[in-house]
Structures are given as structure tokens and as C-alpha cells.
Design a protein around this nucleic acid. Structure first.
Length: 89
DNA sequence: TATCTGACGATAG
DNA sequence: CCTATCGCCAGAT
């Protein structure tokens, strides 16, 4: 596992049920601000992580798997609708 | 070493 | 609200 992927895994694994992060936030926490894109790559390759707690900056869910993503988020108390997770706050 | 790719982000129209 | 662009990065080829 590469250093970056390892960092990403650590950040995502540390998330709590009910909380959501954006790819950009994860990238920053992983020590690579601006590498949001690479985060998605790392998550796709990773395994056994609560990946559903990571969404795009505008709340968009996984293209093509929006139903599954939404289902998992709803299980943790979030409100989703049409491939979107409602904005926090 | 050079290119291509994608679970991104911000901006402009 | 939507698409089009451009800048960004780690990985894979």
C-alpha cells in the first residue's frame, strides 16, 4: 500500500457513524490538500473502509451506485434524495 | 520518462 | 439547475 493510500485509509477509518467528509477534506487530512481526485482513486482501491461517509463537495453520491450509497448514509441518520445527500447544518 | 485515467473542485455561462 | 472547462494528483500502462 502506498503512503498516500495508507493515509487516506487512516482518515476514513477514523470517521464516526453519522459523519460525512468530502474528498477534498480527506485529501487535506491525509496531508495532500488538492488531491481530492487521488482520494477517490485510493478509496476505490481500498477495502473494508466506511467509504460511504465520503461524498463530493456538493453532496453528490457515487455515480452509478447512488442508491446503495444513499441507503448506507440513511442508515447512519442522513437524509438523501436523488443521488444527493442533504447539506449539513 | 511519457501518457492516460478518474468515486474531484471551482468557476463561468 | 445544467453542462463545459480547466487545474489538480496519485496510480496504472
Amino acid at each position: 500500500m502506498t503512503p498516500f493510500a495508507r493515509q487516506v485509509a487512516a482518515v476514513v477509518a477514523a470517521t464516526q457513524p453519522g459523519e460525512v467528509l468530502t474528498y477534498g477534506e480527506v485529501a487535506a487530512e491525509a496531508g495532500r490538500p488538492g488531491a481530492a481526485r487521488a482520494v477517490g482513486r485510493a478509496l476505490a482501491a481500498s477495502d473494508g473502509l466506511p467509504w460511504w461517509r465520503v461524498v463530493s463537495a456538493d453532496g453528490r453520491l457515487l455515480p452509478g451506485r447512488e442508491d446503495e450509497h444513499a441507503r448506507r448514509l440513511i442508515e447512519e441518520g442522513h437524509r438523501c434524495h436523488q443521488g444527493r445527500v442533504h447539506p449539513r447544518k
